[in-house]
Design a protein around this nucleic acid. Structure first.
Lengths: 197, 197, 197, 197
DNA sequence: TATGAATGAGTATTCATTCAT
DNA sequence: GATGAATGAATACTCATTCAT
């Protein structure tokens, strides 16, 4: 009922929206519920977002920004292989720490109505994938991965990571977060080993 | 206003529900729309299903039954390796031919409200995964896969398959169905090769 | 809050809608207010009308039906001139007795949102105007009106009638209904006289 | 967010309001939309108008001022008959050039909520009608109109003019502006001729 | 002069569901 | 087995307006 904390309205609202999205499911993320969570009238949201769709798009954009931050850590790696490992770590950490964003971005085309248009997604996903491909190429060049083509291998790795998280998130297995993490690491260690020359 | 064909009411309704679910997305599958599609009053559905949630659960059950049919084909394989390949084929075909079911079952825990409880999912998923593990174990025994533990390898393969379909379905890449299929096959060929002794 | 009287739902709702339209103005005819007037939940209206626009169109259609009833009386006239006078009387009586319908049909293109499409209006208006033209033509033939062309004269008469009612309805003059009626009659008597050979 | 040009705020705002009113219809003239059209915050309008109703009344007043300008041209007429013709021309031109104002002023009592009180309308309309009556009286005196009483004839002429425009505006006929104009002229020529001694 | 934030009432519409028939 | 009527809660969104700055 009060005013949202100084100059952070947008951020505060998106945070609650994401929270709601995680806990209640995409189809229950309504402006009304977000507003209630924020402690504000539904109409107040229209000060900060043009429409529900606008809010959803902004939410997605923030997700990608966060994703990028996780992946950027890999740049500190000394060798190509080290950078690849850090990249995988970043992906894993993002997926497990920000599961709501992860589902939103990678697991379904239909979770949020306003996000049917995936161009935005691809626009951000492409450079990310590029980064992975380059990294794999460097590993092949340095002899730490067998040469089966950088792109196919990159795709396989991305698919494996995505799939592991999907299985965890969908509840197909009943893993705790820690368990999911160790399965993820083990699985990747094995695969990277198998793909070593 | 016509009556549904004798004794097939349940089947007919679920068929329309699935159709709607595939074409319009989970959040648009309402009893009203199903009823309109069937050509019947919303209330008529209550003769056959206790509630919307009940209908959803039945829908999911049918999905698993279909999934099982796809996987059962693998039993005709002569060798362990052949059975593994057929298993993967079955998974791929199900994922691409029945994308609505696939998303429902593996990609999000939250697409349908009534399906938060994943026990049902696990109950069916477990024997399926068992089948995969056994198959991998047989492959290891017969020397067509390196021995890194049957379960970890099975998990990796399942994750990879799930992930490839997720990436396709979420629109992260812009693959046609045919393209998705060939990427899937290429990726698996490489991985199986890498895991060969 | 009870059920609408047996089999008359549509009629009852339209009657209240029309009433509201007369008393509160077009822009205040909302489904909510109609429902409240009927003594029913807003949603109950959707049983009987597909949408607000549907309701508006039905309202208009009923207006034309009523209009036709008023004009049909003229058919009982013995001579052409008598029929013309009865036609004018019918128009006057409709305009004064059913002012809400009259405004809806003839005075503004924008009173109701759903009625921007005037094809329906024209479809009904055309035969009506035809009837007037024929009547005038008969009067010319029988020598009770000067021959300046049946259609131009008919148009002039229609315009005069419409204008008199418009001036009354818009409040430009402050006529009582009785006063409006006598002005209407006097004005027409003079004009018909002026147009006599 | 720029400031409105010095001292012209009122005029600029009303201009945009009228534009909106013409193009979008009365019920879509909201303070928000006017503000957006002006390029200003909704609240800024409250500097210049007490309320929406106030703005509407001012809008109407401007309409009458414009109307008067059109009619004033008739004063240049040499004879009584010439002045009458110019008066009719002025009415016609106003009605066709400023249809939004015309509807607002003469066609419905209910287009704008704030204008239910028609005293303002009558206050301006009376001298206008007076002018017409005087003109007709002069025509009678000079022998160019038959003597059926100046006021009844004036009323008939006004009604005819109003009605022709109403039929045009309401879409009862599908006249182009040019067609409406020629119908108007022809109809008046005939009537004035009929009322000649 | 104007803005930015927020409100509260109101808009049409969709939905799952109850109940009497 | 199925309908017809109605409900109550929810949805996104628009609007005029208040208030502090």
């Amino acid at each position: 009922m009060g005013r949202i904390a100084e100059g952070e309205a947008r951020t505060v609202i998106l945070a609650h929206a994401r929270e709601l999205f995680v806990q209640e499911g995409a189809q229950n993320v309504s402006l009304r519920r977000i507003a209630k969570a924020v402690g504000v009238t539904p109409m107040a949201l229209y000060r900060h977002f043009e429409s529900k769709e606008d809010l959803q798009v902004q939410l997605l954009r923030d997700g990608f920004r966060t994703f990028d931050d996780y992946l950027a850590r890999s740049e500190s790696g000394a060798s190509a292989e080290e950078r690849l490992l850090l990249l995988v770590d970043g992906f894993r950490d993002f997926a497990l720490d920000e599961p709501a964003y992860f589902e939103l971005m990678f697991l379904s085309s239909q979770t949020l109505d306003g996000l049917r248009d995936r161009r935005e997604v691809r626009k951000v996903a492409r450079p990310t994938f590029r980064r992975l491909v380059d990294c794999v190429a460097a590993c092949i060049a340095s002899g730490s991965l067998v040469d089966r083509g950088a792109e196919p291998i990159a795709l396989t790795l991305l698919a494996q990571a995505t799939g592991l998280v999907a299985l965890h998130r969908s509840g197909t297995f009943r893993w705790s977060k820690a368990e999911a993490r160790s399965r993820f690491d083990a699985s990747f260690a094995a695969t990277l080993d198998a793909y070593r020359p």
